[in-house]
């Protein structure tokens, strides 16, 4: 066993990161395919306000996070459908939530460290109970994604034809946003709400630049996400740097490389 796995906190971090990286990246593949990166980032940030609000009233921050993210996903699904309008309504919902988050933090001045943990992740603080929770939710989300895979793929690539074929495109859109919201919520302890792009967008965007097929692209996305996330943990352990900084840097490096090689190709 490598030296860093002798510690329980490292084993927990590895287990949680493995599950979150796989689940987050596979959900993220469709986020990138559907050009909903901004909505996914916003949902992840909105969770911060929910967690801060839950702390304020003495509830579990995870529940507050989930409640806010799912509420925001529903509002986004009902709001603007047009591409340009969609970005504006998502941004306004994000802004309003961050304002609430600032208010909650201001009222709950006792512990600013908790807020830092939500914003930037606290992967080395995850305990066995949280891991069980993360695994169960991730499996449910992956199951849901697999269940709607074919209608989601058609509705993402050609929504008008899908609607004409009788596929409930609006319901699929809403379901997918809820899925993204729940995935973002469960990933917060690992990567933090500000750095969700590292897992949700980076690997999928790099994979789509390199691989133009859905099946192989999903496999490559999962592989990249695992390599970057676990590599980030190991790097963080040896270099004594924050884990999310290392994962984020690797994700950025990989994405930059994918753009560069596509440009040269």
């Amino acid at each position: 066993m490598p030296e860093f796995l002798q510690f329980a906190f490292m084993r927990h971090a590895f287990a949680a990161t493995t599950v979150i990286a796989l689940m987050g990246a596979l959900v993220g593949y469709f986020v990138v395919l559907r050009r909903q990166a901004f909505a996914s980032h916003a949902l992840s940030n909105i969770g911060f306000a929910g967690a801060a609000g839950a702390s304020l009233i003495g509830a579990d921050p995870m529940l507050g996070l989930l409640a806010f993210v799912i509420g925001a996903a529903l509002v986004m699904a009902l709001a603007g459908r047009e591409m340009g309008e969609r970005d504006i309504s998502v941004g306004m919902i994000l802004m309003f939530s961050l304002g609430l988050g600032a208010l909650f933090i201001n009222l709950y001045s006792a512990n600013a460290n908790a807020a830092i943990g939500i914003l930037f992740g606290s992967v080395f603080g995850i305990d066995a109970d949280q891991i069980r929770w993360i695994i169960v939710v991730s499996l449910v989300l992956l199951g849901a994604l697999a269940a709607i895979f074919r209608p989601l793929r058609f509705a993402s690539l050609n929504p008008e034809a899908a609607r004409a074929r009788g596929i409930p495109v609006r319901a699929i859109d809403t379901l997918f946003l809820l899925l993204v919201g729940a995935a973002a919520a469960v990933a917060v302890p690992v990567i933090g709400s500000l750095l969700s792009f590292a897992i949700f967008i980076g690997p999928a965007a790099a994979a789509q630049a390199w691989c133009p097929r859905v099946g192989a692209g999903l496999v490559l996305t999962a592989g990249l996400a695992l390599t970057q996330s676990l590599g980030g943990l190991v790097l963080s352990y040896y270099a004594n740097l924050p884990a999310s900084s290392c994962i984020g840097a690797l994700s950025f490096g990989c994405y930059a490389l994918s753009r560069l090689t596509r440009r040269l190709a």
């Binding site: 395919l33 074919r150 058609f154 133009p212 097929r213 859905v214």
Partner: peptide
Amino acid sequence: ALIGREFVCAACNAHRLGV
């Protein structure tokens, strides 16, 4: 991001659940 074959394939059994 996708090639022509993948785009065309998206309509295959698109109403069915599961992979």
